[in-house]
């Protein structure tokens, strides 16, 4: 069989963004989620502020290790008018400041400020991924709600875990189970909706193949987590079920983000809408290898 020498015609997996880029979405998303959870939880947990800040900082550190010229990193602030990466960088210092201030009990307003900034940060992250127009798995509009929803679920999971350790009484209430189960159900819905969108709008075959392997795993993890969260909602005195739900919510979210950034990141490939005339012939049908 003839094998063309330019093998890279059909979509292939990009290699520019690896686990370090995924780390920014994993830690940044979870950190933002923690700060949003801290603002919405009925009982104040000031420790969540610094935890969220550390997570966001870890994400930024991952990016710093990824970029080719780390000592020029501040140049990232130059294009907030068009680039979501620039916007994320502008939000980050304010978010970190507000999150750290949350630890000071006399600055209650910083909890709200941190949550608002965290929403903006989470949205920026989702849009960063969505602006990668070369990657069909990222550029689909349903990527945005999926990334936001996952960040919220991870943040709630971490918030619940911290609550179990620092203030067990605050977690021993059925609303904790209901809210975590609700967020997990939303994430499952977002994942199924996202997969349906990709199938409907067309995607590279290798992306659809990987998606059909990964999505059931995420749904299984999320279903187990939801069941555990619902069990806690029914019997709020047992900490084990909500701890299990929280751990699964975080692990599944982080695994999914790593998957979407590193594994599902097949590019567009090349398309030939029609083949050219050769000699006195006519044009032939086109080709879209790998789709």
């Amino acid at each position: 069989m003839y094998v063309p020498n330019s093998s890279r015609v059909a979509p292939w997996r990009q290699t520019y963004w690896d686990w370090r880029a995924a780390g920014n979405f994993i830690f940044g998303g979870a950190g933002s989620g923690v700060l949003i959870y801290a603002a919405t939880a009925p009982e104040a947990m000031p420790i969540l502020g610094p935890i969220g800040a550390v997570l966001v900082l870890c994400g930024l550190l991952c990016v710093w290790f990824e970029i080719g010229r780390p000592w020029r990193a501040l140049n990232v602030l130059r294009r907030p008018g068009t680039s979501w990466m620039s916007r994320e960088a502008w939000i980050a210092p304010w978010l970190l400041a507000a999150a750290v201030l949350e630890f000071s009990p006399w600055l209650a307003w910083s909890r709200i400020a941190a949550a608002v900034l965290a929403i903006a940060y989470l949205y920026s992250q989702a849009r960063i991924l969505n602006a990668g127009r070369a990657i069909p798995a990222w550029r689909h509009p349903r990527t945005v709600p999926l990334m936001i929803e996952s960040g919220l679920a991870e943040g709630a999971g971490i918030g619940v875990l911290v609550g179990c350790l620092s203030a067990p009484a605050s977690v021993a209430q059925s609303w904790v189970g209901w809210s975590l189960a609700g967020l997990l159900l939303l994430r499952m819905t977002a994942v199924v909706w996202y997969r349906a969108g990709l199938r409907r709008d067309g995607a590279p075959q290798n992306l659809l193949r990987d998606l059909s392997r990964c999505v059931p795993r995420l749904l299984t993890l999320d279903a187990c987590a939801t069941a555990a969260a619902l069990a806690h909602a029914a019997w709020p005195r047992s900490a084990l079920s909500i701890e299990t739900a929280a751990v699964l919510a975080v692990v599944a979210g982080w695994w999914w983000k790593h998957t979407i950034v590193v594994r599902l990141s097949y590019n567009q490939g090349f398309t030939l809408p029609m083949t050219p005339v050769r000699g006195a012939g006519v044009t032939g049908p086109g080709s879209r290898p790998g789709w």
């Binding site: 520019y16 963004w17 970029i67």
Partner: peptide, 12 residues
Amino acid sequence: CIGCAYCAIACP
């Protein structure tokens, strides 16, 4: 350029 490769991700 800081080498973030965001452009490489965006170029179809």
